[in-house]
């Protein structure tokens, strides 16, 4: 085990996969000379050259579309979008092209590409640079959606994403980039569709994504003081989703709370609740709960922003209510 920044764990995954496979090529805004807006790709231009670590113009649809073309012709492109909000600028290429080409070609084509992009609030970036796009992208068949929690998870899941033969939306939480974590050496690729039990417990199951896993862990420590035993499932991937692990846990605990930072409406909580209901209904001791960002755009002022995004305090309060 060693200590590492989340962003450096991501860079190690990129570096190791680029060393392993010459067909891995990166393109994105500011990923080269300055090493990325969040410094994930520092040093890779120097190591792999300008053709493999390509600083692009500000053309999100163009670079995602180029990634699709590269993927169709034998490369494994990794496209970095500086903020996940910019997925909307490139939406046609992501949703109508990358996600659908294999299907529309009757299985002739595969599109092995990764779109790496940061999600989440907490930086006073306001409503166009703070969104969590996982619920939106998960809606469209043909995209895999990854929401890593820790540095270890980010590294292992990114390696899997790069080796996957499908378009993968890899959502990094921007508040984690400069956080320190302990990491194994080496980190093996982590399979998609298999959730991780981040903490074992008996009274309530929290299914969390991305940063909310760590926030749930903080909340669980608080709740432990009150004698509430929380089981935390780190979902890892929204598509594919590991229903079985959730169902087994809820059968044991009798309660389910979903914590995800995307907006509440048509969100991950609603999806998971409905997806497991048939299997867990008779085991539930309380209605399924969800914590999400309310249905308002993310505000700029910290006085407005922090109170509305999911937090350990909110998780504690919600769990206590569900335990009543």
């Amino acid at each position: 085990m060693r200590e590492i920044l989340y962003r450096d764990a991501l860079r190690e995954a990129l570096d190791e996969e680029m060393e392993r496979d010459d067909s891995v090529v990166m393109i994105g805004e500011d990923i080269g000379f300055i090493g990325g807006n969040f410094k994930v790709t520092v040093g890779l231009l120097e190591k792999y050259g300008d053709l493999r670590v390509k600083d692009s113009p500000i053309s999100e649809a163009g670079i995602v579309g180029m990634g699709v073309g590269m993927a169709l012709t034998g490369l494994r492109p990794i496209v970095e979008l500086m903020f996940s909000d910019f997925l909307l600028v490139a939406a046609d290429q992501v949703i109508n092209q990358a996600a659908k080409i294999r299907y529309m070609s009757g299985g002739q084509a595969k599109v092995p590409m990764v779109i790496r992009t940061p999600i989440g609030g907490g930086r006073s970036s306001a409503a166009q640079h703070s969104q969590s796009m996982q619920a939106m992208v998960a809606h469209f068949p043909g995209l895999k959606v990854v929401v890593p929690s820790t540095a270890q998870e980010a590294k292992g899941l990114l390696k899997t994403a790069i080796r996957d033969d499908n378009p993968v939306i890899f959502l990094e939480h921007k508040m984690e980039y400069t956080n320190k974590f302990m990491i194994d050496d080496p980190v093996e690729p982590i399979p998609f569709g298999k959730a991780r039990i981040a903490r074992e417990g008996t009274d309530i199951t929290i299914v969390a994504t991305s940063s909310q896993v760590m926030k749930s862990e903080k909340a669980a420590k608080e709740l432990e003081k009150d004698g509430i035993s929380v089981e935390i499932i780190d979902l890892r991937t929204i598509v594919p989703m590991d229903r079985e692990t959730i169902i087994e846990s809820v059968k044991k605990t009798g309660r389910l709370l979903v914590v995800d930072e995307a907006h509440e409406r048509c969100g991950i909580g609603a999806e998971i609740g409905a997806a497991v209901m048939d299997d867990v209904f008779y085991y539930l001791d309380a209605p399924i709960g969800r914590i999400a960002t309310p249905n308002v755009p993310l505000p700029f002022s910290p006085a407005l922003e922090f109170p509305i995004i999911p937090s350990p305090d909110k998780i504690v309060a919600k769990v206590k209510k569900m335990m009543e």
Partner: peptide, 24 residues
Amino acid sequence: LGANGIVGGEIPIATGAAYTAKYL
């Protein structure tokens, strides 16, 4: 690389194929 139902949708895709040729 495919006919495409979105007007202009295939232009960057073909451009990506050209990038592959240049890269390889």
